[in-house]
Amino acid sequence: MKHTKSRSGTGGCGSGVTGIAGNYAAYQRWVRTTHERSKYVESTLIMADMLNDSDLGTSHRDTRPAEIKKSEQEVSDTIDAINEFIDPFSIDDKNNLYCITSGSRVPSEYEYDILQAGTMGKQAKEAFMVERLEKHDNFFEPIKET
């Protein structure tokens, strides 16, 4: 694919699409022959020892050994982090909320707010729609914090 790209801009002498975009027939010839031209360029570079067959697969960053090792470490770290979380279904105390990441109990003063967040959000949305959208009044006023 890299051999199909143009090295020149509009009106340049390269084989890129920008110089021929205004001519439909020329554009069609360019599109239909690009893959063949790239084969010739790649074969020429291989014959001139400017490109090795072994280098063809390692040109992408993700296939380099250091990148593979780094990616494997990141996957391993992610798995370890998930395994550190508590299983919310294995807690004996079913009457309180627990933080999944730390395993600690949520304080009771926050527990009510967390449990009511969905209901309170729906009520606030409905109040906004009635007071601001339907009445067309105070639309740009700041929303009160609850």
Rank of each mutant, 00 (worst) to 15 (best):
H3F: 09
I86P: 00
R37V: 01
R37P: 03
L115F: 06
Y27Q: 10
R29P: 00
R64S: 07
F139T: 07
T44P: 01
C13P: 00
L51H: 05
I68G: 03
M120D: 13
D77I: 05
D55V: 05
T4L: 03
T63I: 04
F140H: 10
D113Y: 04
K144Y: 09
M1R: 11
S54T: 15
G16Y: 00
G57N: 10
H35I: 00
E131K: 08
P142F: 04
S8K: 08
S59E: 08
C13A: 07
N95M: 13
E67T: 11
Y110A: 02
N95H: 14
T34E: 00
G19C: 07
S90P: 07
F139M: 11
M50L: 12
R37G: 04
P142R: 02
T63E: 09
H35D: 12
T34Y: 00
D77N: 05
D80N: 11
V106Q: 01
Y40E: 15
G103D: 13
D55W: 06
Y98C: 01
S6F: 00
P142A: 04
G14N: 04
F140T: 12
S90C: 10
D77Y: 02
K2D: 13
S8R: 07
D62Y: 07
K69R: 08
E134I: 10
E141L: 14
K69C: 03
G11S: 04
E84F: 06
H136E: 13
E74Y: 01
K94C: 04
I143T: 12
S6V: 03
E42G: 05
Y110E: 08
A66R: 08
A25I: 11
E111Y: 09
G11W: 06
T10P: 02
A81V: 13
D87Q: 04
K135N: 14
I114D: 03
G16L: 03
M120R: 13
L45T: 08
L56A: 00
T63R: 04
D55P: 00
E141K: 15
K135H: 09
R37K: 14
G19D: 05
G22Y: 03
E141A: 15
R29G: 03
A81Y: 10
Y24W: 04
N96C: 15
D87A: 08
A66I: 05
R7L: 06
R32L: 02
R7P: 00
D49S: 12
S90V: 10
G121T: 13
G16I: 02
G11V: 09
E141V: 12
V41D: 06
H60I: 09
G22R: 07
Q73F: 03
G12Q: 09
S76V: 01
I143G: 09
T58H: 00
G103E: 10
F85T: 09
G118V: 10
K39E: 14
G19L: 01
A48Q: 10
K94Q: 14
I91T: 12
R37L: 04
K122G: 11
P107W: 13
R7G: 04
D113C: 09
T78Y: 08
K69Q: 08
R64V: 00
E74T: 03
T146V: 09
K5C: 03
